[in-house]
Design a protein around this nucleic acid. Structure first.
Lengths: 190, 190
DNA sequence: GTGTTTTCTTAATCAAGATTAAGTTTTTTG
DNA sequence: CAAAAAACTTAATCTTGATTAAGAAAACAC
């Protein structure tokens, strides 16, 4: 299953047979049960996580006690709290499995080893982050320039399967609307 | 002035004297006049830009014809449209100087040369992007969990000088409110 | 330094979506 | 499979902040 991560890396940089063997030896997939936490707010985030299968969510519990979705993590995406992982300070976020999931976690020690032995990975992670950051700039555009209804229709058009897969109230939160409002929009069935 | 960029890089990675000399030779600062564009929507973004002095803005003109701020670029920050720069496709954004500004532009050819001769820069850019992406996740938190008024008070508390420096309607747009609303909030003077 | 453009303010009206409060359906669990 | 928990729906009321429309004040340009 580490092969899936290796394949993802090889889309960006070249890996020798040794590199790959080293990765296979160092890394192993982890199975997560639905609702299992990787870390909770108040704890530091100790790794970066690559999603092989299933769905994770990064969210924050706000001052009113309601959960706000920040980011979904699905197939072949990295998800983590970079701030906390880097600083080793407690995270303000929670990272939880939405469905049963398979991930590869890379903690600090493993990251050190990997980046030392396979320096091309610096480039790989740079490219991954450029894509993620670019996508997040587009998300600001959607948030500010579309209504809640438009955001939902756009999103469910882009990820029709995903919308079926995770609870609606998580989609609502990710889009910045209430579940009640989303329900109303869906009922229109335009 | 390239020294300022070098200093920024040396906070993250080690550069040899040759590395620095090479950078000084390859790169040069560019002066921008207030309102000058680096690229407009429809044109590809051909470089990444490091702000030495002054302020840039990345914004998008929406379907109603109004401008929506996406990102400010100030002192020691990188700003670009990574999507467009990477794909060479037209950008949907505009990148413009808000004030007179001094920047260092790194185009694709220069980037190639730099990353080949100074491979540590891969790591530097990775770290820069982790910070930027981490900050953008926090911005989603602020957008979703704070009212427009709270966002303004929080922002102007965090960057009191900056709020004085750029037109209010740009701050309003960045925070996702209208200039009229921001004016009302400021009038309260609580 | 005066005319023009840009920016900011005030105030009335309006709308998108939140809140509240049940009630219903679906899923999970023992 | 029955009870409990989780997820979804409906509808009435309410609120934040948008829109519209002037007008005032700064900033710029000739």
């Amino acid at each position: 299953m580490v092969a899936q991560l290796i394949a993802h890396i090889e889309k960006q940089v070249t890996l020798s047979a040794e590199d790959k063997a080293f990765m296979e030896e160092l890394l192993a997939p982890t199975l997560l049960n639905k609702k299992q936490f990787l870390f909770k707010a108040g704890e530091p985030c100790r790794a970066r996580y690559f999603v092989l299968e299933g769905c994770l969510r990064l969210y924050i519990t706000n001052s009113k006690g309601t959960d706000q979705m920040i980011q979904f993590g699905i197939n072949n995406w990295w998800i983590t709290d970079y701030m906390s992982f880097k600083s080793k300070k407690p995270s303000v976020f929670n990272l939880q499995a939405v469905t049963n999931a398979t991930i590869i976690a890379i903690n600090e020690a493993q990251q050190e080893e990997l980046l030392t032995k396979i320096p091309q990975l610096e480039r790989y992670f740079r490219l991954v982050l450029e894509t993620a950051y670019g996508a997040s700039l587009m998300r600001f555009n959607y948030i500010f320039n579309m209504s809640g209804e438009e955001r939902y229709r756009f999103f469910s058009n882009l990820f029709p399967d995903f919308v079926q897969l995770v609870p609606q109230y998580l989609i609502a939160s990710y889009l910045g609307v209430t579940p009640e409002f989303l329900s109303k929009v869906r009922a229109k069935k335009v």
